[in-house]
Amino acid sequence: MTNEEYNQISIPYQVLTKRFDHNQNYYFDNFYKCYNPKHYIVKDENLETLKKFENLTPRDIYTKEHILAHPYGDKYLDSKLVVIEEKRICILSELGQVFLYLLVSKFENGINQFLELVEQLQTEFPGLIRTKEDEKVVVMGNYLFDDLNYRFEQIENYDLIFHLFGKTNSGLLMQDWNKNIEIHKTKIKGLLDTLKIFDFSKVEL
């Protein structure tokens, strides 16, 4: 995946999943967040990305097994992911999270490699790498993380995975107050597990 292809999805993901927005530029209408067409998230290259989802519905992106196991209702399942009108552009509220899983699907091999390396490093450096929160989070010094960067760089799409984990809203890789790197290993595994409910075969980017 190129940087351009990554940004095409990661920018809408970050804006649509922003938890605290002091200048809320949308309103809710049924299943949707609706924006003024002049808002940057629904303009220019972002609009071009959204257009690729306007003919898709939740029924198109969830697996049949997932749909059968959850009582969504036909109204929701047949709602367009994006509705483009003259005076507003409406985006299904969950689409921001869907974009996250779309990226995870692109990086699945690399993410598995990342998790394997983290577990390997835990074995190699038991005194320097620890866990907390019932082993859900792996913690290592920033200096050690930097020293081991050459090993992480061998991972497929690592630069983009690092950005997704550490520079977006995902909160999967962070630096704490003591300048330790925290890797939320259990949450990352959870992303891969949840990915199983999606079928992105109809998504064309």
Rank of each mutant, 00 (worst) to 15 (best):
L164E: 00
E153K: 13
M1S: 11
P126R: 08
K87E: 14
G127L: 10
L191V: 03
P126A: 08
K179S: 15
E48T: 06
D21K: 12
G190F: 09
K185T: 10
E116Q: 09
N36E: 13
E54Y: 11
R88V: 09
N7H: 01
G73H: 06
L115W: 01
L195A: 05
D199S: 10
N46G: 04
R130T: 15
L77F: 06
I188K: 02
C34K: 10
Y13S: 09
L128T: 04
G171L: 07
E4Y: 03
Y32P: 01
I155V: 04
D60P: 11
Y27V: 12
N23H: 14
L56V: 11
Y158Q: 02
Q122L: 11
K196F: 05
L81C: 08
G96P: 01
F20N: 11
F114S: 00
D60A: 10
N109Q: 08
L117P: 10
Q122W: 03
Y32E: 08
F53Y: 15
K38M: 13
K179Q: 13
V118Y: 02
V118N: 02
Q122V: 07
N157D: 14
L56I: 07
Y158H: 03
Y13I: 12
G171H: 08
Y72Q: 05
L173G: 02
R19I: 07
D134V: 09
A69F: 07
Q24S: 13
Y101F: 15
L205H: 09
P58S: 06
K136I: 05
Y150P: 07
I89T: 04
L56K: 06
I183T: 07
D193P: 02
R88S: 14
I67T: 07
T57Y: 04
V82K: 03
P37C: 08
G73E: 09
K167H: 13
D74W: 04
G166P: 05
T123W: 09
Y35N: 03
R130D: 07
W177Q: 10
H163D: 14
L117K: 00
Y76N: 07
I188A: 03
D193M: 05
S170L: 11
T123Q: 14
V104H: 00
Y143M: 12
R151D: 05
I181N: 00
E119S: 13
E85K: 15
F53W: 14
